[in-house]
Amino acid sequence: MQLSEKINDKVIFSSWSGGKDSALALHRALKELKRVDILFTMFDETCVHTRAHGLSKRLIQAQAESIGAKLMMRCATWETYEMEFLEFLKGVENGTGIFGDIDLQEHKDWVERVCATYNVSVLEPLWLEPREKLIEEFIREGFKAKIIATKTEYRELLGKDLHNRETLKLIEKLSIDISGENGEYHTVVYDGPIFKEPLEIKIIGKHSTETNEYLIVNI
């Protein structure tokens, strides 16, 4: 039996950061599931920017509209993250969630534990795939993403397009993980096969912390 037959009319959601891994995971899942109903994004406690990548609600909403899914969000500190995530899961009980984990076992274990609370099936389309292979697939499939956050020591990546081969050469030169799985960089996806139309990303500012550099982007 096909997975798409098993879930029938149960809610399908994507745990959505707005970046490359959640986008590629959704793309792979859609080949089998054929639909996604909800993009779920966790925002920070101010409800202004996403918890993971510091993206605006307007930008995430534009991604959802172009994908053809409903955006749902909750707001949390790191301390209240699990509680807020469980509140969301309560509303999609017995559904299916798509996640973009690659090989961080601790996070996958957490996802499976909290989803089990409400009998939510977990799909991990990227799990244990070679990171280089995933980046190549991301580019080959036509995705476009901009690097919008980096650790301070890798600030020269800020604003670069990930799908540009020169960017990949720079990542290699810096001797960092090609997927940024250790937090070296984060991306926002603005075009690709899951989008009905590309987003026009505008860089409207920049800010720094002791450890990271961020672009402020919107549409």
Rank of each mutant, 00 (worst) to 15 (best):
S179T: 10
I98K: 05
L215I: 00
F85L: 15
K10M: 09
V36G: 12
G18I: 06
A29K: 03
T77L: 14
G97N: 00
I204P: 00
D109P: 02
R35I: 09
S208A: 14
L3H: 10
E137M: 10
V188H: 02
I178G: 02
T80Y: 11
D191G: 02
D9W: 09
A149Q: 05
L89T: 05
Y118W: 10
G180D: 11
H49K: 15
S179R: 05
D191I: 09
G95Q: 05
L134K: 04
G180E: 08
H186N: 09
G54R: 08
I148D: 07
K169E: 14
H207C: 06
Y81C: 04
P130R: 12
F43Y: 13
G159T: 09
T50E: 00
Y185H: 08
V114G: 02
D161M: 15
E213A: 03
A29C: 06
K6Y: 07
W127C: 03
A116G: 15
A149K: 01
H53L: 14
E181A: 13
L3D: 04
L89F: 07
E141K: 09
I147H: 04
V120I: 15
K169I: 08
S208H: 14
T167P: 01
I102Q: 13
F13D: 00
H207K: 15
I204T: 12
A145W: 05
L30Q: 08
E112Y: 02
L170P: 03
F40N: 00
K10S: 09
R165N: 10
F43G: 00
M42P: 02
I147G: 07
D103G: 06
